[in-house]
Nucleic acid binder design. Structure first.
Lengths: 189, 189
DNA sequence: ATAACAAACTAACAACTGTTAGTTAAATTT
DNA sequence: AAATTTAACTAACAGTTGTTAGTTTGTTAT
């Protein structure tokens, strides 16, 4: 039994490096150096560089899928569903900022099978999001703007939140959630 | 005199490739292959791989700077300034989708001098944006939400617009501008 | 004590990287 | 017609890439 698993350590530090320079610009020697070991030693714990990327991305992608599934099947109004979606998206992002960067920027470097799986998950996520928005428009809870514009303006902000949080004087999380939800749903004017 | 300059051609096709896989994952041989020439021939037109990146990024960064400078010094209300900012941001992005992707994802691979210049320009851009928002809050035109949250929710959407445009059944540009401005400023509920 | 295992190491590999040097052929200028 | 320029080429370079093989060392289980 160990306090921290080396494999986890490799994945964590890799996510941090991938976020800084991108998957392709980080070498196995870079990762090894950050852990103060030799590159070859990494292969006692992981099969390949791409496997590290898979371990970083697929877990968090699944978390988003579970999150939206639970919300979609709940008995809330469309508006409440959207609010919960935003809150949970913020929660997941702040807990996994580095992984979120990899998800956004390096998904195209996943191996074939995982790439297909990822794209499927992303499409399904967006489709469920779309359904909630459409239901909200139909019920009059949401303005009748172009559906894609609505989805895009919400998701683009949520997906790049990792770029902003922690940059300036650390914003209180609850305040962030409150103001961000207001800004995204009710606007700023 | 030539109809199309080879150097421009190299920059254009590189931006397209960089967008797909990222700067580091694209080799000079990849770029050459896309132009149906040999890698060494590229050096008749450009000094280095990094110079290509500079040519892609710095031009569009300057365009954003000019855009916000003109708006900032105009005599409009804060709200009108924001509206114009959104419109111009959309215009520039749709005219330079590939370059926008490079700007967002590969700026850290710029050579030292240009990296510094880019970061300076970006900070100044955000600072001018911040000033407009603060003036709007002071005048009561804009809601009193956290300033950083407002800036972030607007800029994150605008900066990643390239990811969405052209994906689905091509949205009319004027409709996009209208609905996006509404969504960003007045919200969706 | 001995066996088994985990996790580090050294050394090496073939492929690929950005880039340079020198050459050639065609187009343009003098 | 001769001279120059442009833009392609081949060949090669030194360094880096992800990865494998085989070995060593310290820890845990028998």
């Amino acid at each position: 039994m160990k306090t921290i698993d080396r494999k986890t350590e490799i994945v964590t530090i890799s996510a941090k490096l991938f976020r800084q320079k991108g998957f392709s610009a980080v070498s196995m020697r870079d990762i090894a150096l950050a852990l103060d070991i030799k590159a070859a030693s990494l292969y006692n714990h992981i099969k390949s560089k791409q496997e590290i990327l898979v371990l970083i991305i697929i877990d968090i992608a699944k978390e988003f899928t579970q999150s939206i599934n639970a919300i979609a099947k709940s008995k809330n109004t469309s508006l409440t569903k959207l609010e919960k979606l935003i809150e949970q998206h913020i929660d997941i992002t702040l807990r996994n900022a580095d992984a979120m960067a990899c998800l956004n920027n390096d998904w195209m470097h996943l191996p074939d099978d995982e790439l297909k799986a990822y794209i499927k998950m992303r499409n399904e996520y967006e489709e469920k999001f779309r359904k909630i928005v459409k239901a909200g428009i139909a019920s009059g809870e949401i303005k009748n703007l172009n559906v894609e514009v609505i989805i895009f303006s919400l998701l683009s902000t949520l997906r790049t939140l990792y770029l902003w949080y922690g940059k300036k004087s650390a914003l209180n999380i609850e305040l962030l959630k409150a103001d961000m939800t207001k800004a995204l749903l009710k606007g700023i004017v």
